[in-house]
Amino acid sequence: MSTTLHWGIIGPGRIAHKFADALAYCDHNQLVAVASRSQQNADAFASRWQLAHAYDDEAALLANPQVQAVYIATPHNYHYPAAMRALKAGKHVLIEKPACVNAAQFARLCELAEQHDCMLMEAVWSRFLPYVAQAKQWLADKRIGEVQSIQSSIGIAFEHGPEHRINNKALAGGAMLDLGVYALSLSQFMLGQSHTAIQALGKLSADGVDESVMATVQYSGGQLAQFATSIVSQQQNALHVYGSEGTITLEPRFWSGSQVSLQRGDDIQTLTLPWAHNGFEYQIEDMARCILVGKRQSDVVPHRDTLAVLTQMDEVRRQIGLYYGDEFEKV
């Protein structure tokens, strides 16, 4: 393939603009096309980022031979069908988190990626950030001894109305898929183990989405990860990794920050590690490198981790009674 990877975007919303900004920063990556359900929205996005191609139909984008990779930035319930069509068209796929509504859908995408020799990755940008990499290095160096537990909270009191996607069950809204995925994915990343048990409680809104969830996950090594997530309460938004000899803390906004602390007794070391650009550049560069050398999975966000986190979220949703309906849950 060419040393420049040519991208298309499906779903030109707010997060797609952040992705386009990061892509413009990255060498050997170029955004060439966008698709939206609205030609007006596609044209506006294309004008902002000086793109040659703007479509009101994703099929037209997928038929463009110049497009090699696709970033899917639609609401959650559209991730699976859009990714399925992109893989069948032979495009490499980066899907905004959560990759799918459930684990069975992502397992099917993995099969399609293998069949069509395509790269497939969930866009968990937090895993690539410098301060998270520093925390992982401290863990590898046993700076806090043996990890015993992880505790995190991710809650934002959104003021959006009932029509907004985060409050809309028809768009797979709610706290778990939008926010809780960060707590579970980073806990999975820190521990690198499979889970063995989950206990969860949650509160559903009148419209049927999860407003607040608290859960504990036990992993194969015996460690526990406890998290709280909410779209109606403002929380501490920190993640603490507790070890036999100390604590590592990511805060504030542990999923999108730059500060990491290591505490051993009374000694506290705090590092601030800023992003090179807006934070999305690391996942873009990782995916481009993988494709260039023929890899079809990222070492940072491998398929097994995405499947594990989606399986955990499936169980949490089962326990709190949240099902999005056959239309959105089907494979």
Rank of each mutant, 00 (worst) to 15 (best):
H92A: 06
G180N: 02
Q40D: 05
V213N: 03
E245M: 06
P162N: 00
G294P: 13
F106M: 08
Y182M: 10
M287S: 02
Q50C: 09
G174V: 00
L23G: 09
G265M: 14
G180C: 01
A276G: 12
M313E: 11
G221C: 10
E96Y: 14
H6S: 10
A99M: 06
I10Q: 15
Y323H: 08
S2N: 05
A44Y: 02
D326E: 14
M121A: 15
H160L: 07
Y80G: 03
Y219P: 06
A46P: 01
M214C: 14
N237W: 07
C290P: 13
T247S: 01
K97V: 05
P130A: 01
V293I: 14
T247L: 11
E251M: 08
S205W: 04
A228I: 12
V101M: 08
L31D: 12
D117G: 12
L5Y: 04
M119T: 07
K169Y: 05
S38P: 12
F128S: 07
N237S: 09
K136N: 04
L109K: 02
L307A: 02
Y282C: 04
P98N: 09
V67K: 13
L179D: 00
A83W: 06
K295Y: 14
V67H: 15
R296H: 01
S38V: 07
M1D: 07
I10R: 08
W255A: 11
V124Q: 10
I231D: 04
I231Y: 00
A59G: 08
M190H: 05
Q269T: 05
W7E: 13
I166Q: 10
A157H: 14
G325P: 06
Q259V: 14
S187L: 09
S233G: 15
Y80C: 03
A200Y: 02
D57V: 07
S258N: 09
L87Y: 11
D299S: 13
